[in-house]
Every structure is written in structure tokens, then in C-alpha cells.
Design a protein around this nucleic acid. Structure first.
Lengths: 232, 232
DNA sequence: ACCGCAACCTGAACACGTTCAAGAAAGGCG
DNA sequence: CGCCTTTCTTGAACGTGTTCAGGTTGCGGT
């Protein structure tokens, strides 16, 4: 992790790809241009020229222009976690933690609103490797879900024991909904998205609390059964 | 509606555009090719050639390739309504009506699953006129919401009076969620989507019924307030 | 030192969506 | 009928993402 000169001990290690430096350089250049000019306005020729390589070389490392933004997921996810860390270390109340994490996510995304909006359309395509539901992006997705697991497990919330293991994924799904709204949100500073978060969190909090009530148990079970059924 | 030769009486009528026939011919050709070969595989040159016009002529009538699929919305919406008509005339139970309408919607979409999946990505882009939330497609959206208003008003369901006027839009939103799931659904015959409908409808039905309970009134109010806030 | 092979790199060429300057057809008006 | 304006039509040309036949480079084996 600290240096790559030593082959260490493992045998199945990727055999030190020669062009890793080139790969990273192209990626960095692309991300910079995307942020500077926007995704659609950045041509592959411009990326190649700016990075000092041939166009074809970019395609040697990345199957398509879309693949150049997968890094966006990873970076955003890491920033999200970092941005929420202080709050998660401090607060114990479930609603407060959830609210903070949702706001932190939008905080991270905000500088890239235009950029993000443009490429979210490609993410929505089922066949795209960029879809948050696709197998190709399962790693950042799992990381994102883990963040919401942290929200729950570090809190004092009392949750139905059957619901508890499923809840992080549900919270992540809710977050995806917030992001979807945010992408379409044209209000100044995406203020409406902030209102959505502030309004939805207490409702989620209450619903989670109610899940333990004996009278609502059948409904909880029904919801859980539905979730398990439709999950691929 | 039956003939277009007579100028009838109205004055503000669109002054009989000359190329309406050409426009329709291009549209029909495009839709046919989309269904035959898929959206991405159908080139504008192929559409123009097949329709017997120059490629530039297609752009005279339609601003872009995407605009050629707006018809898909309208047609699907009409088919959906027609497909649900018999059930809506027969049944009075809210859950039965809702379930039938949701299934009818998927029935209509099913033959175009691959095609629909391909173009839903463009619909997801906020700036696209094809977005179901955009102003450009407000007409088919309103028609779709009206269908769910019919579901509610023709039923014997007892609903909180404050919730009632908002419910059709919420049901449409739920339908959009079902469609989103359906687009990503790779199970044989999209069977999972059918399970989602069958599982979600009873839950919606119960939630709607509970909205009238005095103890839940504050929550109902809160939900309604949130909806009104975040609606553009 | 040399060979062979895989990894890496090149840029012209291709197919596509889209634009545009130019023209043809149709309608109104004297 | 002749003229003008609006509507419609054309196809070459542009910029884009992507491909590919062919080069170059580095490295292990002899």
C-alpha cells in the first residue's frame, strides 16, 4: 500500500503492469477536463492531446469514454465517508446521523452538479457498467451501503431484529432516491433537495421505530418478504 | 378528428401545415425501425433512406434522434388506458384496480423491453425533453396521472380527504418506480416486476387506508407537507 | 548479444448524429 | 400570369466516439 517496488509475498499479484502510470495520467487528465469543461464538451481527442498520448492509447486502457468516469464513483464515495466521519464519531442519535450523512453526500456532489447530471443518464442505462446496480460497480456500492450500516450500528436506534440487517441497503436506496431528485433539482443551490432530506429523515426515523410495534409486525414481515423477493 | 379537409369553424387552428404527411411518414418509419433493430442500431441515414427523404429533412421536423421517440410515450399511454379500461369498468375495489392498472402498464411495455431499456437512459437525463418530469412531456404525464385518478375515484376506497387530491400523483410516482425496476429487471419475462406489483399493492392499499386513522393523522400531514414542499 | 513475445502505443479511417448553405415547391397577391 | 414570401427539401460537410492494422518498447530465455 505504501510502495510498489517490493513484490511482497503474494503470488497471485497482478504482475506489475507497465503502463499503470500512463493509465493514471490519462484518468487524471480526463477528470480535470470533465470538471473544467463538462463531460459532453470534453472530446477524447482533447483528453489524449492534453495527456500527451494518442487517442487510441486512451482506448487501450479504457473501453469507452464512459469508463473514464467510473473513478468519479470511487472518489465521491471516499469523500462522502470522510465528510461524514466527524459527525458519525460525535453523534449517536439515529435521525441526526442519517440526516448528516445524507447532507454530506449532497455536499460532496454539489460542485459537480452539472457534470453529474450529464453523466447520470448513462448510469441509468441498465446495460451500462456505470449503473449503480450493475455488477461492475458493486464495489463502490458495497462501500456506500457500509456507510449506512455505520449510521445504523453506531446509533442508539432500536430496530426490529429482522429488519436490522436489511436496513442499510434500504437507507442506501433512499439515498439513491435523494440523488435522483437532486439531479433534477433546479432550485437555487439545490435547496429543495435539502428540504427533502430534512423532511424525509424524521419520517424514516419514525417508520424504523414503529417497525418494532407488535401490531405492525405483520406489515414489517410483509415488507421484508417483498424486499427479499425482488432483490436479484 | 375524422377528416382534415374541412377547415371547420375555429380560427386559431394551426394553418394546415403542408408537410404533416411527411412528418407522420418519417415518424412511422422511425418507430418501425426502432422496434425492428433497436434504437442504437437504427441510424438517421437508415430512417431517411427507408422513408424516402433526405437526412436533413428528418431534422427539419424533429430536432434530434431523441425527439423521434416522444411518440412512444403517447402511444404507450393510450394503449395503457385502453388495456386497463375493461378492468376499471368492472372492478370497484381499490387494490384490485391499482394492481390491474400497474400490470396493464407493464403489459403494454413488455414487447419493447429491450427498446425501452435503451432509451430510458435518455429519459433519465434532466435536460432531456424526454424526461417524464420535464415540461415538454407534461401532456402524457398528466394523462398518466389522470389514469390513476380514475383508479382512485372509481373505487370504494376511503381516503383521508387531504390526501385524496395528491394520491393520484403519488400512485403515478410509484408506477414510475415500478417501471424503473422493470427496466433493470433481467428475470425471465420480467417476472420479478410482477412480484413487485403484487407485493407492493397490498402495502399501498393498507397505507392509504391507515391514512384516515386519528393517531396517524400527524404523520399524514407531515408527508403531505413534504410532498408539497419538494414539488417544483 | 540475440530472439520472441507480450504489452504498449500510434494515427488514419470509419460510422454516426447533426448542421447548413443552397435550392425547389407551394401559396398569396397584383 | 409573374413575382415574392414562406415552407419544405436536399446532400455535402463537420465534429464526435470508436476501431484497427500496424508499429515500438521492454523483458525473459538462450
Amino acid at each position: 500500500m505504501t510502495d510498489e517496488t517490493a513484490p511482497t509475498t503474494a503470488a497471485a499479484e497482478p504482475p506489475t503492469p507497465r503502463g499503470e502510470q500512463t493509465r493514471q495520467h490519462i484518468l487524471d487528465t480526463a477528470m480535470r477536463l470533465f470538471r473544467e469543461r463538462g463531460y459532453a464538451q470534453t472530446t477524447m481527442r482533447a483528453i489524449a492531446k492534453e495527456a500527451g498520448v494518442a487517442v487510441g492509447n486512451a482506448y487501450y486502457y479504457f473501453g469507452s469514454k464512459e469508463h473514464l468516469i467510473q473513478r468519479f464513483y470511487v472518489d465521491s464515495q471516499a469523500e462522502h465517508r470522510a465528510g461524514a466521519a466527524a459527525l458519525l464519531a460525535r453523534e449517536r442519535d439515529f435521525a441526526t446521523r442519517l440526516r448528516g450523512v445524507l447532507h454530506a453526500g449532497i455536499d460532496v456532489l454539489t460542485p459537480s452538479h452539472e457534470f453529474a447530471a450529464t453523466f447520470f443518464k448513462t448510469a441509468a442505462e441498465p446495460t451500462s457498467p456505470l449503473s449503480p446496480f450493475s455488477a461492475a460497480s458493486s464495489e463502490p456500492r458495497e462501500a456506500a451501503i457500509a456507510l449506512f450500516r455505520d449510521v445504523l450500528e453506531g446509533s442508539t436506534a432500536k430496530v426490529d431484529e429482522e429488519l436490522r440487517p436489511e436496513l442499510p441497503e434500504l437507507l442506501w436506496l433512499a439515498y439513491m432516491g435523494v440523488v435522483l431528485y437532486w439531479v433534477h433539482d433546479r432550485s437555487p443551490g439545490q435547496a429543495k433537495t435539502r428540504q427533502l432530506i430534512d423532511g424525509a429523515v424524521p419520517l424514516i426515523d419514525r417508520a424504523v421505530g414503529l417497525s418494532r410495534l407488535r401490531v405492525l409486525r405483520p406489515i414489517t414481515r410483509e415488507v421484508l418478504h417483498l424486499i427479499r423477493t425482488i432483490r436479484h
